[in-house]
Nucleic acid binder design. Sequence first.
DNA 1: TCACCCATTATGTATAGACATAATACGCCC
DNA 2: GGGCGTATTATGTCTATACATAATGGGTGA
Lengths: 227, 227
Amino acid sequence: MGWEDVREEVLRRIRARDWPPGEVIPGEEALAAEFGVARATVNRALRELAEAGLLERRRKAGTRVALLPVRKATLDISIIRQEVEARGESYAHRVLAQRMEGISLAAAVRMGVPAGASMLFLETLHLAGGRPFAHEVRWLNPDVLPGRVVPDFGAVSANEWLVQNVAYATGDIAFSAEAATAAEAAALGIAAGDPVFVTERVTWTAEAPITFVRLLHGPGYRLRTMV
Amino acid sequence: MGWEDVREEVLRRIRARDWPPGEVIPGEEALAAEFGVARATVNRALRELAEAGLLERRRKAGTRVALLPVRKATLDISIIRQEVEARGESYAHRVLAQRMEGISLAAAVRMGVPAGASMLFLETLHLAGGRPFAHEVRWLNPDVLPGRVVPDFGAVSANEWLVQNVAYATGDIAFSAEAATAAEAAALGIAAGDPVFVTERVTWTAEAPITFVRLLHGPGYRLRTMV
DNA sequence: TCACCCATTATGTATAGACATAATACGCCC
DNA sequence: GGGCGTATTATGTCTATACATAATGGGTGA
């Protein structure tokens, strides 16, 4: 009996309401004895269920079934090229604009830099099977470019280049629904005012902000996840 | 030195490119010796980084820094009441419709039941601070109701009632952007055609589908996550 | 009655040792 | 040279034991 078996059995008991929400379940020692495994094995199983939000554990107080489980859904944030290729379509991208520019107020706020700071501005259209898939607007801190030399983003997309060449970073992501502006609609080949699925990402290192991206997907796009 | 310290040090080396993408890093045994900890401690640290997508581990082949790290972002899927109250606003909900009805084709496909099957149909408006926050349309399998008795969803929302009273379930979630229909717009107090942020969830147990929910958030809604 | 202190207790983590498992890479054979 | 089988090896997991840590709840004293 391995830790995964223990996890499944505990999960079964939770689902079967042998242990109803809010109830304290037997301690690790007791479960280890019942299942005939070491306490570390039970610990591993219960820890995973707690991380999934199904159990709440506190020292001394014990382990209880979550009353209002906050389900944790995980999203795989992949490179757009991978996402397109995973659908079995061919990927391509076109750089629509690339220039140094004073950063917009909205982007400056998100990146935590002064408005108007000089950043590399990039506008890219991502294509799947030759058709517009996503429209990307990006501000990139030129300080993160080795020697401040701008790479050829026509060959490798900025997203991919950054992943490969700049330090692994932290960041956050937000999703929303917006109406496409005339310019955005034109780029995506849709009508102005059509709803677009917007992904905004900020990434930074310990020292400095790296980039702010605003990614627009046209109608029909669905972001999927598994609970 | 604990496993979190080991994880941070390894993460530092990855970010500092001491170990560049694609490179095989020293084995657990070697790192354990270097850090002066047990192999299990190093294992725990590396496992977490692998789960986060930063490392790729294979038996015999060893551990290498991910070439194209697929970042895993986690979303907390909470009950709407919790979400509203977390914003410091007062929560309320109104049941707009509740009746047995043949399920729509779209919902039947997602739930994996025959189209037209008799389900409990629920339409609910969730309010934050007295203003419309989200519009919910739900089909609920009446078989999961104990004794097939319909609870009072005016008192406790269906979402919350299910979490408390029906077995913990699995499911999946999808997000998209759509244009509000006239009816949806009226319920949310927005204009028809305005973009809405759509969340669709299906949940089921091992035996049967439980519910399909379609949740609409009006303009201004942002779904946030941390990478 | 209430505030505070502290013993108790369940979880959290670390360790050394062992065996399991997957998969590479090498050597053998053709 | 090419295909195949197998020894080797790094990770995956389990165990028993020990100590650390947080937090509860009861007891103490004002």
